[in-house]
Design a protein around this nucleic acid. Structure first.
Lengths: 241, 241
DNA sequence: ACGGAAGCGGAAGACGATTCCGGTTGTCGT
DNA sequence: ACGACAACCGGAATCGTCTTCCGCTTCCGT
């Protein structure tokens, strides 16, 4: 009832140790039992392609039946492969999500350590704005967990650089940065169609706000990992229901 | 199909001119034609009370049928009074929304002009956190428009004080502040239940970011009123549909 | 070529918002 | 006090969607 078959496919990857986390382990060819029959695999791709097309056209406001018919399959076929409409949408966001990690690592690879944090934040926002697939829900998915850990590890390294260079106030932690990025992506989602540039201005304000020099201490304890996890799992629930 | 009956009730209010905008004109007793029959009025209150109760219990995740049965009326009765479930929810948010304007005016009344802007931003967030009714959708409502104008006018006055006192960078406009407040309320909505204090820390970051002293100019033009209007009308649409 | 697991299509079911309508009840003029 | 009638009422029916179910079909391994 719960698991997407491929969710377990990364479990065997050895934990990477280097400063720059290794990129995601390439998906090994699935074992006999978990491979789809070839017609099934073909249909799965068709469904995904149709869904992506519809997503780009109508941004999530489409029917499962539309997906099925555009893919040339029956509704039942869609549901055999994706237990729920949300699961289907999550699957659309996955490549985008994986790209996020790459982007984070690229920021960490920036030659000037002092610039890495700002680079990171801006790159995250930029990617979100460019791709346009809402991925917030995905952070709480089984597939995402291993990626997420690497993401946070990378962010911590970046933050250490920024701190060492005096480019960030000392009382800011990685999950604080997470919240900041989240807020920007929320703004991007809300404004992108109507006013595609607002978010950059807002981001500038945020980045400036991260500079050292504030006299007052921040009001509360740092955001913790647990805070962050609850935030991402709660974030889809933003309106009536 | 569109209008809530009372939407026109403020149209006769004279435009206020003083530096502190006059408080909202008290709703005059509705004319003969627009007064509800007394049983209808009673039912309306019951529905509203039931809805508020359910809202506090389940945060929007309840059925119109539940509202009706808790109020002891039929579904049809709910729908005669509120054309749509969203309209009902908006009505719940209205008193809260009107309170916002009062809060803004209170901030402007702060004895120390230099403190008014920060006071304003913090008070807005605090009220949002305290009341807990999502009101974003309401900003785009017919009832809200006159209030909104006064709200913006007050904010402009506050901003002028802040600028005169050197407490805000010169390139920040009222709608920039609007975006900032919006982002905080979004964070509040998303985190309040799980981690009730995160937003204060984030707000501190934002406030510090508004201080003068940033060397770089902001990347894009100021947020305009039109930007803002599109933002608020689009913001409920944050997920699939 | 054959047996059967894995797939397939699409009808049926579940759920919630919204609409409709025949019967009921305050209100107002007389 | 009374009658007429517009405004109300309740809740069954409708509609749009997601999700489940099931009898029939098609690939895969032997």
């Amino acid at each position: 009832m719960t698991s997407v078959a491929s969710a377990a496919s990364v479990s065997a990857a050895p934990a990477s140790a280097g400063p720059v986390p290794a990129s995601v382990a390439p998906a090994r060819t699935p074992a006999r039992a978990e491979r789809l029959r070839c017609d099934a695999a073909r249909n799965r791709e068709r469904v995904l392609a149709a869904a992506l097309e519809l997503y780009r056209e109508h941004g999530g406001a489409f029917t499962v039946e539309e997906v099925a018919s555009r893919a040339g399959v029956g509704i039942g076929t869609v549901y055999r492969r994706f237990p729920t409409k949300n699961a289907l949408l999550d699957e659309l966001a996955r490549p985008f999500f994986e790209q996020l990690l790459t982007t984070a690592q690229a920021a960490y690879a920036h030659p000037e350590p002092a610039e890495r944090l700002e680079m990171f934040i801006r790159a995250m926002a930029e990617q979100h704005a460019t791709d346009g697939v809402r991925s917030g829900r995905l952070w709480d998915t089984a597939v995402a967990r291993p990626l997420r850990d690497e993401y946070v590890r990378t962010l911590e390294l970046i933050l250490a650089d920024a701190r060492a260079s005096g480019r960030v106030r000392a009382d800011v932690g990685p999950y604080d940065v997470g919240v900041v990025v989240w807020s920007v992506t929320g703004l991007i989602d809300a404004t992108q169609h109507a006013a595609p540039v607002i978010w950059r201005r807002y981001l500038d304000l945020l980045v400036d706000g991260l500079r050292p020099g504030g006299e007052r201490p921040l009001a509360t304890r740092p955001v913790t990992q647990s805070d962050w996890e609850q935030l991402v799992s709660a974030s889809p629930v933003l309106r009536l229901g």
